[in-house]
Write a protein that binds this DNA or RNA. Structure first.
Length: 207
DNA sequence: ATGCCGATGTCCT
DNA sequence: GGACATCGGCATC
């Protein structure tokens, strides 16, 4: 039984708490009556204007990033390296550009459609590992940016699953070396040892 | 197991 | 023109 997360979940002021709470929740998309779902196993928090790794660093506003300043509970999807569509959840109040990047999923439902979208012929760990792959499998594109997460096409739900607190780990974000000291902040959250995690063994604290 | 490379839209200098 | 919240393939250790 899945219960869609309410607006209040996204309006909370601490994006780090939200990024952590999203671990174990279920991301759902629906298109042409077919549903796909995946459990969130890796996230990254982007902490607003003060965070040098964020697209909203220094209060930058462009047509691409404008949606980060919207009231929490909408999608921010942007094109990375001109190829990959990356899915983020916008949080906090209007004009506070907090967001959480969904970096990896455990596939749960709609596997046939995920395979079709990604052009793969079998389900393996790579199907939803990493933000580009996860969005592709779920059918998420930049066309969805600004979409409410309280609707039907894309949302996040709680099915009662709770990761063990001892399995939740925080570490530095991936691919943000340009952000100087902010690159070292432990803003990446993940379920320790999960097979769908992005990053290397060392970044996942596995020897 | 690790490292380099190319693909390429949006933003910045 | 260059950098970038990435990925898969191929080369090399």
């Amino acid at each position: 039984m899945r219960k869609k997360l309410s607006k209040d979940f996204y309006l909370r002021p601490d994006v780090l708490v939200i990024a952590r709470d999203l671990l174990g929740k279920v991301l759902v998309t629906e298109s042409a009556g077919i549903r796909c779902a995946g459990r969130i196993v890796e996230t990254e928090a982007y902490n607003g204007e003060a965070d040098k790794a964020s697209h909203a660093w220094g209060g930058r506003r462009t047509s691409r990033t404008e949606v980060m300043y919207a009231t929490g509970g909408v999608a921010y999807v942007y094109l990375c390296y001109g190829i990959h569509h990356l899915f983020n959840v916008v949080t906090n109040s209007r004009d506070i550009p907090h967001a959480v990047l969904i970096r990896a999923l455990e596939p749960l439902e709609g596997l046939d459609l995920m395979l079709k979208r990604t052009g793969k012929n079998k389900v393996d760990e790579s199907l939803t590992r990493g933000p580009g792959n996860a969005a592709k499998a779920m059918g998420i594109t930049t066309a969805m940016t600004g979409t409410s997460l309280l609707g039907r096409t894309v949302y996040i739900a709680d099915d009662g699953y709770r990761p063990a607190a001892t399995d939740i780990t925080a570490g530095p974000r991936i691919g943000v070396d340009y952000a100087g000291a902010d690159a070292l902040l432990p803003y990446r959250f993940y379920i320790k040892g999960h097979p769908n995690l992005s990053g290397s063994k060392s970044t996942n604290n596995l020897s």
